[in-house]
């Protein structure tokens, strides 16, 4: 029964809170949607911590796509055998994980010790940083220590298919029953993190300005079009 809760009910609750919460915040609290930078207060430590963390987590994101979203069959067809895959996963993922953890620790210490940053840090800020830190420490532990000392766990046949099954609304929770504890813990904390996104500064993940390179440099907007957000281009 608890298996059904953790691998069916809980993930869907987390996703629902995330989606509904973000829609609500975007529509009704749009003014609060931002990347809450503290660079204006302190630059020296941010210069090291922030790029380290952000680039690390972008690499980690693509790593998770490779492991969770892309099916194992794909690698088999390509001729990538399990050893090659795991060697790449452990080295690449390990680097990304270390970057994330190191960056986050710098950022967390900075948040707690630099007076200006500390004074303006909210509960939600600490909550988000500590939760991401917990998830990434677990993930880095799995990648670097568990995979090399216990065994290179084949999550592509258990966690991956389970994760994909969530999106087709056919959750195969039984795949998760035999998964080692650290992996299960990592997944549960990650879903907790997803659920917290709408309530923290993490919403800025979804604001990556990907369209910037393609738009006209100078933007004109007419008063007529203001509320509709339309713009004429140069």
């Amino acid at each position: 029964m608890s298996e059904v809760f953790w691998w069916v009910v809980f993930p869907y609750i987390a996703f629902t809170i995330m989606l509904v919460g973000m829609l609500y915040r975007f529509a009704f609290r749009g003014v609060t949607w931002t990347a809450p930078s503290t660079e204006f207060f302190e630059k020296k430590w941010l210069r090291i911590g922030s790029p380290l963390f952000h680039y690390g987590i972008i690499f980690a994101f693509f790593g998770h796509i490779m492991g969770m979203v892309v099916p194992k069959r794909f690698y088999d067809v390509l001729g990538v055998n399990d050893e090659m895959y795991h060697a790449f996963g452990i080295i690449g993922g390990g680097f990304a994980g270390l970057m994330v953890v190191a960056g986050l620790i710098i950022l967390l210490i900075r948040k707690m010790t630099v007076p200006r940053v500390r004074a303006q840090a909210s509960f939600a800020d600490y909550f988000a940083v500590i939760l991401v830190l917990l998830v990434s420490i677990l993930g880095t532990y799995i990648t670097i220590i568990y995979n090399t000392t216990v065994h290179a766990y084949e999550y592509r046949t258990t966690i991956g298919p389970w994760f994909r099954s969530l999106f087709v609304f056919q959750p195969q929770y039984e795949l998760m029953t035999a998964v080692p504890f650290v992996f299960r813990f990592h997944v549960i904390v990650a879903f907790l993190l997803f659920a917290s996104i709408p309530f923290t500064s993490l919403v800025h993940i979804f604001s990556f300005p990907a369209r910037y390179p393609t738009r006209a440099p100078i933007q004109y907007r007419s008063r007529i079009g203001y509320r509709k957000g339309s713009s004429t281009r140069k």
Binding site: S207, R215, Q219, Y220, S222
Partner: peptide, 18 residues
Amino acid sequence: NPPCVASCPSGALYKRDE
């Protein structure tokens, strides 16, 4: 020729037409 407008990744800055 406002560089702030051109620098904004989100396209939030704009010059009013009128």
